[in-house]
């Protein structure tokens, strides 16, 4: 998995590509832990993301909880496979997906 960051003021866009699974989820978690300070608008770009496991969902849930306190979280470019995962797990109820 590759993580690309783009910071514009208090807006942080993180583009992911590849698989967000048990092996790669800790990378994203570390990245978020170190980058989320003073971020008010967090955007995930999932256009290039092929797979999302429950470990990835855990990181998203964690990010959502944090952004609930300090701003907003939006996910862009969710493909059909991942959308199915979001729907099956009820994540569509808590995430803002555009």
């Amino acid at each position: 998995m590759e993580i690309q960051e783009l910071k514009e003021g208090s807006k942080l866009t993180i583009a992911l590509s590849g698989r967000l699974d048990t092996i790669t989820a800790p990378d994203l978690e570390n990245k978020l832990n170190s980058s989320l300070n003073a971020v008010e608008e967090l955007v995930f770009d999932f256009k290039e993301l092929g797979y999302l496991s429950s470990a990835g969902l855990r990181v998203l849930l964690s990010a959502q909880k944090r952004m609930n306190k300090q701003g907003s979280l939006v996910i862009h470019g969710v493909n059909e496979t991942i959308m199915e995962i979001f729907e099956a797990t009820g994540f569509t109820d808590i995430l803002k997906i555009e």
């Binding site: 969902l57 849930l61 909880k65 099956a88 797990t89 009820g90 994540f91 109820d93 808590i94």
Partner: peptide, 12 residues
């Protein structure tokens, strides 16, 4: 339609 996962958000 499934509900949200357990242990995620306490008001689900």
């Amino acid at each position: 339609k499934p509900g949200f996962v357990l242990a995620g958000i306490n008001t689900t």
